[in-house]
Simulated assay, not measured.
Amino acid sequence: MFTRIVKMEFQEAKISAFLDNFDTVKEKIRNFPGCHLLELYRDKDDSSIFFTYSKWENVTDLETYRNSALFKNVWATTKPMFRSKAVAWSVDTEYSG
């Protein structure tokens, strides 16, 4: 299993629309095969910066999601709301306390 972190910076006027859309699609993403967790975080200092934090069974599952109609629809809706390009990391847990 691994974690995917995506940083997104939104245009101020688009934040409400993003949150509404996320609320609509979050359960579909969470129920996608191989997805074990999806959370949305908001930066404490800049309220236009959000992070999605998701856990995936394997890279193949994430790639299947990224090639799905669900992702393509989510991305087509979300991407025009950005104020800058999203940045993503796929990470493994090296230390958990």
Score class of each variant (00 low, 15 high):
T52V: 06
H36N: 12
S90M: 09
S48M: 10
V6I: 07
S47P: 05
Y53T: 12
F10K: 04
Y53D: 04
N58I: 04
K26M: 04
E27Y: 01
K72S: 11
R66G: 05
L38I: 15
E12M: 08
S54P: 00
A13S: 14
R4D: 00
L62V: 05
L40S: 03
L38R: 03
D43L: 02
E57N: 06
N73G: 09
E63D: 13
Y41F: 15
Q11E: 10
H36G: 09
T60L: 14
T60W: 05
A76I: 03
A17T: 14
S47G: 05
P80D: 08
T64W: 00
S96P: 03
D61N: 15
P33G: 00
C35N: 15
A76N: 13
F71R: 06
K85E: 15
S84P: 01
V74N: 14
K14T: 06
K28T: 07
A76H: 01
N73L: 07
A88P: 01
K26R: 14
E94W: 08
D46V: 12
F82M: 14
W75C: 06
I49W: 05
T77N: 13
M1L: 06
K28H: 05
N21F: 13
T64N: 11
N21S: 10
E94D: 10
A17C: 04
E63V: 12
S96L: 13
K79T: 09
T77V: 13
K7H: 00
N73T: 11
E27W: 01
T60D: 15
A88L: 09
D92R: 10
F82W: 08
F2R: 11
S16H: 11
E39T: 12
F32V: 02
K85H: 11
D61R: 10
K44Q: 12
D61F: 02
T77E: 14
N58W: 02
R42H: 08
I5H: 00
N21A: 08
W56D: 01
G34L: 01
L38Y: 02
F22H: 07
K79Q: 12
Y53I: 07
G97K: 15
V6D: 00
Y95G: 13
F2K: 08
K7V: 01
T64Q: 10
A69G: 08
H36C: 00
I5Y: 00
F2Y: 04
F18C: 06
Y41H: 15
A17Q: 14
R42V: 11
D61G: 08
E9Y: 05
G97F: 10
R4Y: 03
F51P: 00
Y53R: 11
K28L: 11
K28Q: 10
I49D: 04
F32H: 01
I29Y: 01
T52M: 02
Y41L: 15
A88M: 11
A88W: 03
S48C: 12
F50K: 06
S84D: 13
N73S: 13
T64F: 05
K85F: 07
F50A: 04
T3K: 06
A88G: 10
H36T: 05
K85M: 10
C35Y: 03
L62Y: 12
R83M: 14
E27N: 13
W75P: 02
D46K: 09
L19D: 06
K7F: 00
R42I: 06
R4I: 02
L70G: 04
V59P: 02
E39S: 11
Q11A: 06
V87N: 01
V6C: 02
Y65N: 06
F22W: 08
V59A: 12
L70M: 02
V87P: 00
P80K: 07
D23H: 09
R83T: 14
L70F: 04
T93H: 07
